[in-house]
Each structure stands twice: as structure tokens, then as C-alpha cells.
Design a protein around this nucleic acid. Structure first.
Lengths: 195, 195, 195, 195
DNA sequence: CATGAATGAGAGTTCATTCAT
DNA sequence: GATGAATGAACTCTCATTCAT
């Protein structure tokens, strides 16, 4: 596949991403993507066999960008508390942005394709997030910013709470206050007072 | 619709429940249910207009049974800690029973029907669970079984963690150890030592 | 079939009549009539096999009533011109009452059942109307009210014009002025000046 | 849609035309047309969404051809009487050709789609026919061929009679003599003696 | 007589997927 | 590589008609 093709593939993935954000995963048909991309039906099949393949590509792209954004956003002289608060604020923004997220599509995708153990990007993301969180907390504890007996446990707990908030936002809906309450609760658990 | 009909309706809902457990919500067609129930195409339409209507009925049934099970399972002389541990064990069982649960179907159902605020059974269930948990913790604190500064916050935190575990179980998968770790973490947070 | 049954049959026909007026003939299903009559599905089949049979009964009823109305409306000392004008006024009213008429249903009915020569009520009605019209014109001519060379031809011509107006009203629509113009034209053809 | 498609669309319309002539409008299903055209179910939907859309196209085609036939059929040195007689003969032929006509389908179509004021081809056709008839009569009067006091009224009257004959032919049936009688009556009204 | 649950045929419609150009 | 017409399987939904009660 030449460079041209690579570019077209990228174009398709980016366009499809918008479609998935709007409609989730299951509702999206190859036809939807063909129309959004304004290419031919057969053309799409040259690059992808089905929507799952396209969505996987979207997820990969997403992960890369997420990493970039994360590392970019941390200034050198930021304290652990600063970073944690920043991270939670980002999560809050995402949580409240209901129809402009890949969250629902991602969940649907993993429902559909029962446990594709290999290439489970979602799992990698979650595990890596837990690790980063753990390190962050440890650093905070060392610096006397946080108090915490079980850093690993706390990191995991925080990540599961966030996951719970995410799915709640998509199903039963969630208010800004509810999110704030949880954030405050998390920070208090680490003996961090102000937000 | 006479008594006979009511019985048949119940039969359909119960049969459909199994189908939803196997396939989730979206994948299920009226045809699937017709075949599972071994009734005629038109016959099903006498009782329900679409899969959403059937699923709602399944959910209602589920909620009732859940309530029954809950109240039944509490013996008179059980301590707050006993009840909490029992509850978490139940949750654990449910979490590990991946393809025998309505969890995925329920999530899919609420994805599909974007935010039906009224009649949102899921929300009612969640809120009611938070309240029960809060009361339980308060009782435990009063009896000196638990230690806890913010009962309400802790109750909410626990429920969100469980929600996070539930969705994780359905998407990235979860091991028994992981569940146990979280349960232990929760109990330690309340100063309860043994499981 | 006892008296009770006869009454029920009449009830069904009268209720079905309203349905046909609203929906025409083809669109009407046995289900529609069952619902309008608020009787059981099977119950309707005890009296009628299909919508055509019901509609025929409606037509018969209609014809009887039409005759009654016609003979009733003619006072003893009315002149031929009076009667003609009265008749045309009635026709006009009917023409402009678009959705409250059996016209469309009747046409549809005869489209559906290609030429049921026997029992063709519509034909009988038309032929009888021509005859009455002919007699009326003859009377008028004898009394010096009308001028007309070919009474039979004129009678037929008038009836076909009315038929043309009727179908036009149902398809392309027709204004009151258009109807008035045709009525005036007819009367002028008979040397009747005022309306 | 390229040239090939246009050709196929034309093929579908022409084939559908025959189906409509046989069955009228309402009875015709997409499946009927699919089978008549010997194409796939989905294939038809590429070109038309429903039978109404196809029928409209048939009507358009028909109108064009009608215009062509009309203008072709008039030789240069024909008198107004010649043309009128020719026209009426054409109408007669059409009237007696019961099951080989779009008349019934057209009426049914306009019944179904209650008064689509814009794009009402039928109305346009009727109005244009009245105008042509009016002009023809005026020409005949000028040339001393016809006698007529109210050309406009007479033109309209003739067209409504023809309309009345048309619907009668489709519903109660009509004999050749009956048609002839009406034609003679019309011509006598214009002082034209022979047919 | 009357009921109404049940059946199943059949219409409409949408898309994944192929393939000749 | 790219196109887009064509296919056909799969689904939804509606009724005429029957039949046990």
C-alpha cells in the first residue's frame, strides 16, 4: 500500500471517528461511513472489511493522541497534587460531554466483540492508567502532599470510580455536582483539601 | 386481555430474558424472540410492539425479584458487617457470571434509547441502592462495626466502584482476584478486617 | 337469522359506512371495521366474509335512503324548473363535501371488483337517474318551462357532466365557482335563466 | 446516476406502466414491479422509493407522449371539425379499451394521495385540454363550421362529459352505442351534422 | 351466537458484499 | 486502485382468516 493509500486510510478513520461519536458503534453501517467519507461502496472495502476493523483503527489513533495530550499537559514544576487535580478536571470535562465522545461507541464495540483478549486496547489503557495513577500517588506521598496507606489499592479504586462515573454518565446520566462530589471524595481520601 | 394472556405475556418476558442474556439487547430481533418462544410472528406483536418494550418488562421483573432476594437474604440477627459482606459477595458472583447476566443488555438498552429520564429504572435502582448502602453504613457506624467520616460519600463511592467493576467485567474482563482486591479495599476503608 | 341478528347486521353496516366515508374502500380492512364496531374479529365474520360484501350492503342502504330523500323533497306544487334547480343544488352540495362522501369509496369499489354486471347498483342508479331527469325535462318542456330538442340526449348529457364533476372533485379538486358555472351552463341549455 | 442508470430507470417505468395498466394503482406492490422487471428487490429501491414515485414517472412519460401524439395527428389542412371529430374518435377508442388503460390507475393514484395540489399532472392535463378545446371551437366558429354562443362553457362542458364517460366506462361499463350517442350530441350542439 | 388469541403469508425496507468496468 | 450498480438475505410489521372455548 503506497503513501497515497495510507493517507486515504487515515482520512477514512478520521471521518469514521466522527460518525462513531454521533451514533455509537452498533448503529453505524458501512453505508454510513461510505456516505460520510463520500467515497464509493467498493472503495471502502479496499481498506476495511467491516466497521469493527475501522473502529479498532479509530481506537489506536485515539490512544496515541491521548498519550500525547497527557504528556504535553504536564509542566515540569507541577506538583503531584496539581497533576492529579488537572487529570480529574479533564475526566470531568469528558464525563459531561455526553454526545461528543467515543465512550459509548467503545463500550458497544467491546460488547459486540466478546472479549478479544489480544489487541484489547481498552484493557491496556486501563492498566496503564492505573500504573500512572499509582506512581503519581506514590510521588505525592513521598513529597508529603498525600496521605495514603495502600497506594496501589487507592489508584485502582480511583480508576474504577471513574469508570463507574463514565458508564453512569452514558446510561442514567450524571450531573456536574455528582461528578464534583466524587472528585472531592477522592481528594479527601488522599488528604488533599482544596480543589 | 384475560388471565391467560397475562400468563403468556409472562412466559414471553421470561423467555426473552434468556435471549437478552445471551445476545445483549441490540442484536436481539423480534424474530429471535418469536423463535425462542416458539410462537408465531404475529402472535408476539399481540403482546409487544418491539424489543424495547419487551426488555423494559424484563427489567421490571428483574427489579422486583432483586428486591425480593435482597429482603429475603437478610436474617434478623445479622450485623451490618454481615449484610455488607453478603451483598458484596452477591455482587462478586454477578460480576464473574459474564454471559449469564442482563448487565450488557441493560447498558445497550440505555445506549440505544438516549436518556428516557422518566421511567429510568436503572437510575431508580442505582439511587435506591445508594440509599440502602448509606443506611447500612450508618447502622454499622452506630453499632461500632464500621469507622467512617462521610457515610453518604462512602456509600456513593462504593456504588460507583461496583458500577466500574461491572462495566469492566463486560468490556475488558476482570479476574476473581481483581474483584476480591476491590472488596477488601472497600471493607478496609470501613475498618472491617475480615472477609 | 333472527331479528337480533338483523339489527346487529344493520349496526355493522351503518358503522362501516362511516369508515368507508373516511378512508375510501380499498384502505379499509376487516380490522378497521371490527374496531369501529367494537365487536370481535370472529363476530364480524359471522355476518360478512369481506369488506366488499359489507360495502355492497352500505350501497343498498344508501340507494334506499337516496330514493326516500328524493321523493320527500319534491313538494306537490313544485314546477319542473324548481325540481331541477333543487336537484342540482343537492348535487353541488355533495360535490363540495369532499371527505364526507361515499363517492370515492364507491369508485374504488367498482375498480376493485371489475364489472360485477349483476347487482351493479351504480349502473341501476345512473340509469334510473337518467330516466327521472328525462321525465323531468319532458314535463318542463310540456309546461313551457324548458326548451329542448332532444330530451333524452340532454338528460344523459347532464348526468355525464355531473359524473365528470364528481370524479374531478375527487381527483383534481373543484371550486364552487366551477360547479356554479356548469350548473348555469346546463340551465341555459334548457333556456332556464335564473338560479 | 449515469446514462446507463437513466436507461434502466426508463426500462423500469415502461415495465411498471404495463403492470399499472393491468392492476390499477393500489393493488400494485414493489414486489410486482420487481418481478415484472426481473430485477432484484433492492435493485428497484436504487431508483424508486415506492410505487407512487414510479407511477408519477409513468404519468410524466404518458403526458409527453400524449402531447406528441396530439400534435402529430393534426395535418396542416385539417378543418376544426376534422380535428374535433378526430379527437373524439381517439377518446372513444380509449374509452372502450377498458383494461388497457391507465385511467383506473390514475384515478386510484389521486384518491390515495389526497390532493397533491402542486405537481397535479392530472389537473394540468385537464386545464390544458379545456384550453385547446376552447381554441378549437373558437376557430370553428370563426370559420363558420360551428355555431356556439359560449365557447368557453361549451369546451368545459365537453371535457366534463368526456370525464364522466371515462369514469363510467371504468365503473358501470359503457357500450359503443352510448359513446356514439354522446359524441353525436356534442357535435349537434355545435351544429355539426355528420360523424 | 360470540369471542379473541393465534397463525402465517406477504409487503416494505435496508444493507453487507460482490463484481464488471 | 476505484466505482457504484446489483444482488439477496434478513427484519419489521400488518392483516385476513381460523378455531377452541
Amino acid at each position: 500500500m503506497g503513501e497515497k493509500s495510507t493517507q486515504k486510510k487515515k482520512y477514512i478513520v478520521e471521518t469514521a471517528r466522527k460518525v462513531f461519536m454521533e451514533k455509537g458503534f452498533k448503529k453505524v453501517t458501512m453505508k454510513d461511513i461510505v456516505e460520510a467519507c463520500d467515497i464509493s461502496r467498493g472503495g471502502l472495502y479496499l481498506y476495511f472489511e467491516n466497521t469493527a476493523q475501522i473502529f479498532l483503527e479509530v481506537l489506536k489513533m485515539e490512544t496515541q493522541e491521548a498519550d500525547d495530550v497527557f504528556s504535553d499537559s504536564i509542566s515540569e514544576d507541577a506538583t503531584a497534587a496539581d497533576i492529579l487535580v488537572l487529570f480529574l478536571k479533564e475526566q470531568k470535562k469528558e464525563l459531561l460531554r455526553k454526545n461528543d465522545t467515543l465512550t459509548q461507541a467503545t463500550y458497544e464495540f467491546y460488547f459486540e466483540n466478546n472479549l478479544p483478549k489480544k489487541d484489547n486496547i481498552l484493557k491496556k489503557q486501563f492498566d496503564s492508567a492505573v500504573k500512572i495513577m499509582e506512581k503519581l500517588i506514590e510521588t505525592g506521598v513521598e513529597n508529603g502532599e498525600f496521605y495514603c496507606e495502600d497506594c496501589k489499592g487507592t489508584a485502582r479504586n480511583i480508576m474504577f470510580v471513574l469508570e463507574g462515573l463514565k458508564i453512569s454518565a452514558q446510561t442514567i446520566g450524571i450531573t456536574e455536582e455528582a461528578v464534583d462530589r466524587e472528585i472531592v471524595y477522592i481528594l479527601k481520601g488522599l488528604d488533599v483539601e482544596e480543589v
